[in-house]
Amino acid sequence: MDKLGIIPGHLVAQLINFFLLMGVLTLVLYKPVLRMLRERSERIAKGLAYADEAEKRVAQAEAEYQRRLEEARREAQAIIAQAREAAEKERQAILARAQAEAEAERARVAEELERERQAALVALRGQVADLAIEAAGRVLRRAVDEPAHRQLVREFLSQLERGS
């Protein structure tokens, strides 16, 4: 034992040294470092989970956005169609009204014309009768002024009219 240098006191001292070192290192090295490693890995896991969540949310938002966009587009289409329909209706209405108005105007003008024609015709007839009587008077050299004669001319004229 002496040649090998084994001294019981030293053996015990080294044993104590070892357990002392083990205790101290557990306190100042293993515990803090392992805790830090665990915390960090937890944090990374949390971060990754959060990133996943965020990605999912972004995808959701994107889908929602697309959905809304589609909805808005459809709505816009509907509004446009509606507006177009309304405009068409309006156009039809305006057109109809204008046509009716034009028709009415035309009728009115035609009526006026007719009336004037009638008036002119009546006046013309009178004048023609007068002229005929005048002419007949000239021809007969006497006045053809009696009502009987007038009546005669009128009948003639109406016969003419009927004949024409």
């Binding site: 101290v24 090295l29 803090p32 830090m36 960090r40």
Partner: peptide
Amino acid sequence: ASWVTMAVLIVVSVLATRNMRE
């Protein structure tokens, strides 16, 4: 020498873990 070794280990550990950062 064992004491020196222990001292080195402990000092390094304390220095390394004194202000642990994320």
